[in-house]
Each structure stands twice: as structure tokens, then as C-alpha cells.
Amino acid sequence: MQNRFNIPREVINKKELLQPGVLSCQGCGASLAMKLALMGLGERTVVVIPASCWGIIVGIWPYSTLTLPVIHAPFATAAVTASGIRAAFDIRGEKNVVVMAWAGDGGTFDIGIQSLSGAAERNDDILYVCYDNEAYMNTGIQRSSATPAGAWTSTTPIGAVKEEPKKDLEKIMQGHNIPYIATASVAYPDDVIEKFKKARGIKGTRFIHLLSPCPPGWRIDSAKSIQVTRMATQAKVFPIYEIANGKYKINVRPERSLSVKEYLKVQGRFRQIPENMVAAAQQLADRKWEELAQLAGND
């Protein structure tokens, strides 16, 4: 795996499916995430968007920035709405269509997890993507169960920062025995594109967890959005790996190693983090990496 930007040109879908005019903030990872995803997926893709930043980013009626069929769905229903669309395409005999649910961490880790679990347990033929900005950013930065321990949010204010570590969603998804689970980060675009390309060719429930920075929510300079996000993987806080039919593989070996503290200190949301929580975060990252390395065959 290359450590520098090296997008293999032959895998990129040439037709631009995301048009200018997205309503995201400066430095938003979520709009970049969609652009990269569609570079891998290409046409014949239907997009389901539950309540999320992307519910706005895509455009306000009568405009849409996506040149694909798009359907908005109630907050908790991204996965099952995709399941319903899949059933309809199947019964109509229309083939070679990817139905992609595109939800935030709130719509995935929290309110939408029941519907996601249902679809995954049935192994419905859908691609579920969680673009994770680690809090309810659309409503103005409230904690989600994807928010890391020690983070400030408007519901975990100064003096009461979030104590609980981020939920390990990949483990939950792995418990469903679906054919493809992957983490990815907009800071590693070649990996993102390849994963979506790969996911397109797999039948059954595919789950991609895409780390997507939110400069206002993370309290970082929008110009440093990608740099900080890259540090999450370098510090092993957000390892990039996949589980294909139960087989683990680490896809990105960070080009440099950072301590968790170095990653946390560049973000305003961790300004008030107590020292003991920094140590706990380091331990968690180390333990998780070790566990992952073992599962991936320690190579």
C-alpha cells in the first residue's frame, strides 16, 4: 500500500457524479467523502440519505448536486429504506444497481442501528456507508456514541467532557457475518476509491465506515482538515482495515507514528481533556492496534 497520494487512474470513474454547489462548510470531509465514493462506484447507483448533514449538503429543492436518483429518508431508516429499494429493483428484474445508504454517525451508531442490524442480519444486498464526523454535527455538535472520550461537544460541555470511548461499530457489524466491512478515511483517498470499487462487486450487505472531519465540530482550521484526519490514522486512533468474508487486512500502514496525545492536542475539542483520559485513549489505541494486527495475521 502506498503511503502517499497515488490514486490508480484506471479505477476512477471518469464521469463526475457530484456536481458543484454542495452546501457543505469549508474543509468538510463529508462532501469529499461522497466525491471519492462515487469515483469508485460510478453510475447505476441509488443514494438513500437519512437526516444528516448530507440531507442539506446535497442541495435544497428543486436542486440536487447528485446526478443519481436520491431519496431522503426518516432518520432511523437509512438501511431498511435501501433494503426496500433493493427488493423493488429485484422484483422488477433491473440488474447491476448499487443501492447505497449514506448516513452520518448519528444515523448509524445511534438512532439507525436497529434498522442497520436488521438489514445486515438479513444480508440484504445494500452498501451501507457511515460517514463519521464523530458527533451530531448537523444539529450543532452534540455527542453521539461515535464521539471519542475526552471530546467537548455542546452536550458534553467543559467540565463534563465525554467519558465513554467511541463505540466499536466494526465489531458489531462483524457479529452479523456480512461479506464486507471496511474502515476508510478521506485523508487516504486512493484507499477510499478502491474500497468502493471493491464493494460494488460484492453481493450482500457491505459496510464502509468513513472517517470524515468536521472543522467546526472538531475545532480545527478548515485548511488543516485533511492533515488532522491523517493524524488519526497515524496515531492508530482510526486504523484503516477491512474484513472481507471474515478475513482481516490492515490496508494502511501509517507513514509515521504519532502518539495519541499529538493527535488530540491539535484539535480544540480536546482542549479540556484530562491527562488520565489521554493515557486511557493511548491504551485503547495500542490495544486495538495489537488486536487488529493479530487478527490480520500480524504482518
Binding site: 429518508a73 429504506t81 433494503s83 422488477r92 434498522s115 442480519e121
Partner: peptide
């Protein structure tokens, strides 16, 4: 009956599944 029956995990999902399917133009 030549129909896809999605055996969901809740009523909320049952109707949401049909919302998706009906949006694709089938009888639900």
C-alpha cells in the same frame, strides 16, 4: 404470490422498507 417479503425487525422498518420500494414504483 410472486412477491418479495422483507421480514424486518420492527414496524418502523416495515413501513420504511415499503417507502423505499414504493418509491421505486412497485405495489406494496
Amino acid at each position: 404470490l410472486d412477491s418479495k417479503f422483507i421480514k424486518v425487525e420492527s414496524e418502523h422498518s416495515a413501513l420504511a422498507a415499503l417507502m423505499g420500494a414504493a418509491s421505486d414504483g412497485v405495489r406494496t
